[in-house]
Design a protein around this nucleic acid. Structure first.
Length: 414
RNA sequence: CGGAGCGUGGUGUAACGGCUAACAUCCCUGUUUUGGGAACAGGUGACUCCGGGUUCGAAUCCCGGCGCUCCGACCA
């Protein structure tokens, strides 16, 4: 893409109503727009990155047998009353509204109720199980206070997967597979080294749930990390009983701030019981379906990646989620020689394929402005590889290749 | 939900109760320049968040509202 065709602009200074690093940098670089507190729009660059994150999650969910669907954001009050989660006393961050006829509806903050209810149309027999279904959905949560940029919004994108199994044993096997898929996701997003499988409260149907916590000072959670075993315990359940249960010693645990980037939950028969999702076994006996839910927020992940990968100059995207693979920066000369060579190089680069056979995405800075401005913007946008073409490099029939992360420079013949 | 702070051109800031609300940046014109946000000249752009009040006079003081930020609480 030519930068002269990109409608977004970079800006020197962050708006004063943002303090969070992720929002400051993403706004300055033109990735997102703040609509109001806790609600952000994604602009072309930001949407490219968000979609890359979404696709990585999609691939991993498909790899464990997940089937993608899309549920409604509007929620039917009756289903939530059945599970006793409609009342504002039980769930305090509902967004609710009314239809013209006066009926109340909610905006979904999660989707256990509708998907459990929906599955009653499709799961009747033990032969219909297992099922794992997931979606990418805009969730709404009426948070008391929005904060931390896109780490915690009132409207945000979430991937939620729900599993349906015959019994506890089958559920546990799937749960473990899902956990491994989550670990692969964070690895691919460049967060693997900083993300810990964290034990957290499990609710009424299992002893623990597992959170995926990425170490960051911007995080809202406090966890205790065991570096050697690569696991952690959330502060909420950090007590002697839990430590003994997990075979951990308090002295080995280090307190850290972290961002919760994922959470997987065993639900048991909490929802299948209350909403009536059951199957007939081989003997014709009716049994409740055993469920699990598995959440990841792609937009929160994008913010987390920024918190982890950035410096004083701007963003530093991992290859896997960068909006473009290459930033071609052309330093024009008066004679137009560089412009001509850069145009040709741009077309050539766009026709090349990466290791996976996909076209290489190139952002071409073809603007007529000074070198300093181009470099500063390039640093800010944070594409991992920068190709600089100028009269100087052309004299040697080459381009300068600079790595955004390491700053390492090498010349490449063209 | 408790506590604190802040609302001034698109953005970031300034202005004692007193002149036509200032500066930088962005944007537009032209000249020049092209390896780290260059230079010069000219120009556009603000009912100082909204509504009341005090005053000869309010961006400035008072009251109410709305919005934003921070600390804490909450966070399936």
């Amino acid at each position: 893409m030519k930068q002269t065709n990109l409608f977004t602009k970079t800006r020197r200074e962050a708006p004063k109503d943002e303090v969070a690093k992720n929002a400051q940098l993403l706004i300055r670089a033109g990735f997102i727009h703040k609509e109001m507190a806790g609600a952000y729009s994604f602009l072309p660059l930001g949407l490219r990155t968000l979609n890359k994150i979404v696709n990585i999650i999609r691939e991993e969910m498909n790899s464990i047998g997940g089937q993608e669907l899309h549920l409604t954001a509007l929620q039917d009050k009756q289903k939530w009353e059945a599970s006793d989660r409609w009342s504002d006393k039980v769930v305090d961050n509902w967004f609710k509204t009314t239809l013209k006829n006066g009926s109340e509806v909610g905006l979904g903050f999660t989707h256990e109720e509708p998907i459990t209810s929906l599955m009653k149309d499709h799961i009747r027999s033990f032969r219909d199980l297992p099922v794992a279904a997931y979606q990418f959905q805009t969730k709404f949560r009426n948070e008391e206070r929005a904060k931390s940029g896109i780490l915690r919004g009132r409207e945000f994108l979430m991937k939620d997967l729900y599993s349906f199994n015959l019994d506890e044993k089958a559920h546990q096997e799937f749960y473990e597979k899902a956990k491994q898929a989550y670990i692969r996701i964070f690895d691919r997003l460049g967060l693997g080294n900083d993300t810990y499988v964290t034990f957290a409260g499990g609710g009424s149907f299992s002893k623990y749930s597992h959170e995926f916590q990425t170490l960051s000072e911007a995080g809202e959670d406090t966890i205790y990390v065991h570096e050697g075993k690569r696991i952690a315990v959330n502060k909420e359940v950090f007590n002697d009983e839990v430590l003994a249960d997990l075979g951990l010693s308090k002295s080995d645990m280090v307190e850290k701030k972290a961002i919760e980037v994922g959470n997987i939950f065993s639900l048991g028969t909490r929802f299948s019981d209350t909403l009536g999702l059951a199957y007939k076994d081989a003997e014709g006996k009716s049994n409740p379906v055993v469920m699990g839910s598995y959440g990841i927020g792609p937009s929160r992940l994008m913010g987390t990646i920024v918190e982890r990968w950035s410096d004083e100059k701007g963003l530093i995207w991992p290859d896997s989620v960068s909006p473009f693979a290459v930033h071609l920066v052309a330093l024009f000369d008066a004679a137009g020689i560089v412009k001509k060579a850069a145009d040709e190089l741009y077309i050539k680069l766009c026709s090349q394929k990466d290791a996976n056979g996909r076209p290489i995405d190139v952002l071409y800075d073809d603007r007529d402005c000074g070198a300093g401005e181009k470099f500063s913007d390039s640093d800010l946008i944070g594409i991992p590889k920068r190709y600089v073409i100028s009269a100087k490099t052309l004299a040697d029939s080459s381009v300068e290749v600079k790595d955004r992360l390491t700053g390492k420079v090498e010349m490449m013949k063209i």
